[in-house]
Nucleic acid binder design. Structure first.
Lengths: 270, 270
DNA sequence: GCGGAACATTAACCTATGTTATGGCCCCCG
DNA sequence: CGGGGGCCATAACATAGGTTAATGTTCCGC
């Protein structure tokens, strides 16, 4: 897929992500760089956003891991998704009154924050970026929907296997995994909250996977020994990640538009 | 909230929904009406979209109920969300290769379909509409995330109660519920698939709710006798529906933009 | 008005997963 | 170098919810 230029100028994770949907122009690139100008660091276990708070700034995760999670009044908690570099936090902050979820770091992170008005500017001035953002939002929703399928209809073993394959895939795309192994800064407690299971049962289930030789774990290092087998166990169908697509589909949509517009309008039977 | 003009011209559910985010101009209204020009009917239990199929047209549900659902190869199924009038189906069809979910009608419906290029046109020519669409997409994702919390961390009783309150709220906004009662064209099987439970257990749970006098059911008519109590049982916190917001927040965002642009740019410390 | 399909209801029984409890390991801090 | 906190591991036991199966009910086509 996309190869990460070794940390150089436009190689921010957000830039990388969006440019896998459209080829970015110089102007668009400049706009994105400007967005990420104001960089800050946060330690692990810091809340970047707290459920119920008024929304403030929006930000881009540039480095590190975080989780998006929701809690019930009595403390039960559900991890909605893992936030990886290139993901945006609170993108619609100016449209929603309060945050309905929290975002908490799992590792030390680097975030770039910007005033939400920038998003409005983006919608006005950069329709292709806007569409790319909408695209990535839709993909994110697809991931949440897939997790919903897991919690609703997969067994514990299937869920764990599915999550591991999903993370492996997502991390591979951003060069954070090499041949089946990656760093997983996730305690079993957090995994439990992501999978709707108890800690103990996550532990049991992980053990089964280890015993059957499908994965190996040492500390935060996780190695998948047999991806295809693990994918079978987890009933993993990567449709939902929408990784397979004709390159530059959005690109083409935008240029086709000129050509097709006349046709469409002339079909009008008024 | 928004009162539905009695079926007259701009009163399409989509128009209504979007105009609760921004006050729509004449041009924008015209564009939306044109979108919904090509109307068709479908019976109950018809697939409007099938998981794995190549995406084709996009469409707007104008009347009736449908469900968005995903299935595992072995037939287990999860309902992701209920599709109500004003919701768009397959909005990003030109960006994704294949559908990762199905959409099936629960009642006879009226849908308007349009070529996906129209969405591109919309992003180019109507940034405010684009933002409104993004907004409603984000709200939809928020609903899926809340359902995820249900499946992961709420008990069966809580889930059922929560779902009923959610539907009541959503239907009230579009004038499809009056003082606590509404028509629910949903079998217990579908409810089970939405809540990650078995049919039998949905039945048991519904009975508990009836026995405790919180709801009444007769045929497809569902009456909530005590909303606030039911909301307590379901740990319902309507934050996620994002109904409470300053009116025309998006509106304001768009006009503020002009004013703030200068300030933001001048902050630039280059 | 009869037969059958689709759906709701209930009971009896079973199992996947949750709970509670205990011990071990590792690492950091004093 | 000793102690405590966070995390992992396992065992024993408890239960929410799943499964199977049998019976009703409603409605629709003929």
């Amino acid at each position: 897929m996309v190869r990460a230029p070794a940390g150089k100028a436009p190689g921010s994770p957000l830039w990388l992500k969006l440019s896998s949907y459209v080829t970015l122009t110089r102007d668009e690139t400049a706009f994105l760089l400007e967005l990420e100008r104001c960089v800050a660091r946060q330690p692990a276990r810091a809340d970047l956003l707290r459920q119920g708070d008024r929304y403030g700034e929006a930000s881009v995760l540039r480095d590190g891991w975080a989780i998006r999670h929701k809690a019930l009044p009595d403390g039960r908690r559900q991890v909605v998704n893992f936030v990886l570099p290139g993901d945006i936090i609170g993108i619609y902050s100016n449209l929603f009154e309060c945050a309905d979820h929290s975002v908490t770091t799992l590792t030390p992170v680097e975030v770039a924050s910007f005033p939400p008005e920038r998003i409005v500017a983006l919608f006005r001035g950069f329709p292709r970026l806007a569409a790319a953002l909408a695209w990535s939002g839709a993909r994110e929703e697809a991931m949440v929907a897939e997790r919903l399928l897991s919690l609703g209809r997969r067994t514990a073993l299937e869920r764990v296997a599915h999550l591991i394959v999903e993370l492996l895939r997502r991390l591979s795309v951003v060069n954070m995994a090499q041949d089946g192994h990656f760093t997983l800064p996730v305690t079993q407690e957090i995994m439990a909250d992501a999978l709707g299971l108890s800690i103990v049962h996550v532990n049991r289930t992980l053990r089964r996977l280890r015993d059957s030789g499908l994965v190996e774990v040492s500390g935060q290092r996780l190695t998948v020994k047999d991806v295809s087998q693990l994918a079978v166990v987890g009933q993993f169908d990567e449709l939902y990640l929408h990784l397979i697509r004709a390159p530059d589909q959005l690109e083409r949509a935008f240029s086709d538009h000129q050509a097709k517009r006349r046709t469409i309008l002339s079909t009008d039977p008024t």
